[in-house]
Each structure stands twice: as structure tokens, then as C-alpha cells.
Design a protein around this nucleic acid. Structure first.
Lengths: 199, 199
DNA sequence: CATGCATATATAGGACTGATATATGCTGGA
DNA sequence: TCCAGCATATATCAGTCCTATATATGCATG
């Protein structure tokens, strides 16, 4: 699913500028589904215009920079619906947060606690935003409502897990640090290279 | 969190070849955390070797192709632990599945049902694999166990949501298709552009 | 009054993915 | 028996995508 297809999808829901498309992937209805950056969106829109799948008109705005409003053409809609029928490639997740947490015993306890708290707050904020979106937009098409519900279920599970296991993780890591400190007084420091956790 | 850092993280858990590192991100302990491809892993290992953060020795294997076993050096471990302290960039998700589902009303009902069933089966298979991993590896370091638990909680929530809302979505989409068919008999087809899915 | 933020478009350089090439041995089906 | 396909294993390239930056304007906040 390349960025051209993502843009067509957003435009099938209504006209938008490149900036607005970006926002749809940041805080809009596609926030938890797919990421896309300016560096791919603007060239994608230009390419779509080149093959006649989107049309573009310039808008001069008061007290705002000019805007290019894009709309999907019939050709674009046809291409989009065809792409929708192809097999989805597997999901790709890239979470620095989880990767760092994997090595929790390498982190200072305060840093770890802050990391967890920040993430919990982030999930809660997302959930609130999605609730608002659901309340405002009660008549969303079935697919959109379903996907939003799934996002909420998953984020809720993540936030709950973090809250319920925060203390346990911090306790285990703290114990690890203590036993490592003890070990370092009795055995040479280079005896355990890879952090040899254990106790 | 670039691929070099990801490789260092895997190697901090034990020696591995490029191929084994890839597997760690596909079905291993990092499966639901981060994705990485051969095209980035092999150059990353080569670059790390160039700056002395990993060491490499060739292994001739019986009935298998030769293998390059990489191990992290003290310099590599130091660099890795320093990187761990930097702020994680926000998570990036790329889910073709959810994007397609967003436009469920553009899909034939059978296709939609198959999509949902496949995904439910995929989640259940992942959960089983993670259960096995947890059973085999009861003494995992605290961070690894925590992250695995979070993955399980999230995948379980996703699978449950799909199962519990599958029928409702299919019903709503079916109803949409019917009312659209009815409309097309009474009003001109080009009256609604962005819903013109038809069949 | 300055710094920063939101709106808005654009691009260059580098990072990463997906596909492909090469080589070997094993396994399951025709 | 033979062949196709799969798992193991490394490597590279073309194309895609992200990060950071540049530019411009108005508004808010200290």
C-alpha cells in the first residue's frame, strides 16, 4: 500500500490539501492505521495529478498561506477500488518504545518510570481524541466505525496493561540492579559482559 | 532507532548471523516490536564491523551454507546502552489490513469475510507462538517478559474485537450494498461519485 | 518584542524495503 | 525417481519513503 494509494483513500472521503492529508494520518481517522510524511505525500500527489487520478485547484486564503486543494477523479476512484481488492501485505510495526523496554534492566529506574508514564498518558490522550471523534461523527460509514473501534480496543488494552504491570516491572528491575551491584563487589566486572541479568 | 541499533540489541542477547537476526524480527522475541529486512541488516552489520562494534567469524557448516556469526564487542555494547537512553521516536504502524477495512463498503462481502477470518487466524497463531515462547523461556529478563506480555494483551484485544464485531460489520455492509442497489434503479448513477462502488 | 506554534508547500540526502540472484540440502508429491 | 518448493544463508539494487530543513505568514504567549 504505497503513499499514492493512501492519498487516494483520503481524497475519496473528500477534497483535501497535502497538509490536510498529512493531518489525517497524524490525528485524523487514519492516525493509528498508517503513517506517511510530507516527503512522500507531496510527490505522490504530483504523480497522481500527472496520470489524471487527482485534480488540483489553487486556493488563496486570507491570513493563511495559499493552499492546493486536491480532488479525486473518476479514474482515480477506479484505480483506488481496484487496489483495495489486492491482498494486504502484513502489518509493519516500528516501536522504539517497546524495543527500549525490552532492555529495561539496562535503564535507570527513574528513566524507566518516566517512559512508562509518558506512554500511558499518550494512550489515554489518543483514546480521548478517538472518543470525541466517535461522538461527533455518529454516522460514519461501517468500515470507518469498525476500524476506529478496533483502534480503541487495542489502545485500551495497551494502556491497561502498562498500568497494571508498571509496578511489577519496576520492582523486578530494581531487584536486578541491586543484585548486580552486589555482584560487582565480589567478582571482576568483566566476568559478565552481556549484562548477565540473573541473580 | 536505526537498523544498526536493532542489530546491536539482538546481538546483546547472544551471537547471531544476519539470517538469525532477521528471524528474531520475524518470529522471534522482537516480532511484534520492529520490522527489518535483509537489505538493511547485512549492510548494517558490515558498517558495525567497520567501526568495531561487532566482531565476525566465518563458520563452515555441514549440509548448510556457510554462516557469518557476529558478536557484539565492548564498544558495541557501550554504544548500544548509550542509544537506549535517547528519547524513543513515536511508534509507526503501517497496516494495509486496517486501511482496506476502513473502506469495507467498497468490498464484496465474501472478500471482507475472508479478510477478517484470515486476520483472526493470524492473531491466534501469533498468540500461540508467544505462549510457547513464554512457557519455554520462563526465566526471561524482566523487560523481555514485560514486552511479550504487552504484545499478548494487545493481540488478544485485537483478535477478540474482530471476532465480536465481525458479524455486525458484515451485516452493516450488506445492508449498505442493498440500499445502494435500490438507489441505482431510481436515480442516475453519477449522482453519488464517491460511493459509486457498485458490484 | 521575540520565540514558538499552526498553517502551507517543497526538496535533498540518506535510510529502508522488496525483489532478485546465487548456492545447498531436504522433503513431499507426481 | 525426479522435480518443485522450501529452509538455510549471504548479498545487492532500484525504487520508495522518512527526516530534516527551507521558505512564508499570522497568531499567541511570555
Amino acid at each position: 500500500m504505497d503513499v499514492k494509494t493512501l492519498c487516494l483513500g483520503v481524497l475519496s472521503q473528500g477534497d483535501a490539501s497535502g497538509y490536510e492529508i498529512k493531518k489525517a494520518f497524524e490525528e485524523g481517522p487514519f492516525a493509528h492505521i498508517h503513517a506517511a510524511s510530507f516527503g512522500s505525500i507531496y510527490p505522490a500527489l504530483e504523480a497522481l495529478r500527472g496520470v489524471g487520478q487527482v485534480a488540483c485547484r489553487q486556493l488563496s486564503q486570507d491570513k493563511r498561506p495559499d493552499k492546493k486543494l486536491f480532488s479525486i477523479t473518476e479514474a482515480g476512484l477506479a484505480a483506488f477500488e481496484k487496489t483495495l481488492l489486492s491482498e494486504p501485505s502484513p502489518d509493519k510495526t516500528r516501536s522504539d518504545f517497546l524495543f527500549i523496554l525490552f532492555f529495561a534492566q539496562h535503564l535507570p529506574a527513574e528513566k524507566l518510570a518516566r517512559l512508562l508514564d509518558q506512554r500511558i498518558a499518550w494512550y489515554r490522550a489518543c483514546l480521548e481524541r478517538m472518543d470525541d471523534c466517535a461522538a461527533q461523527n455518529g454516522d460514519a460509514p461501517p468500515g470507518a466505525a469498525f476500524v476506529r473501534g478496533m483502534g480503541q480496543a487495542v489502545y485500551r488494552a495497551a494502556a491497561d496493561y502498562l498500568e497494571q504491570n508498571r509496578a511489577h516491572l519496576l520492582g523486578r528491575v530494581e531487584k536486578d540492579h541491586q543484585s548486580r551491584d552486589r555482584d560487582q563487589k565480589t567478582i571482576p566486572p568483566h566476568a559478565s559482559v552481556s549484562g548477565a541479568a540473573a541473580e
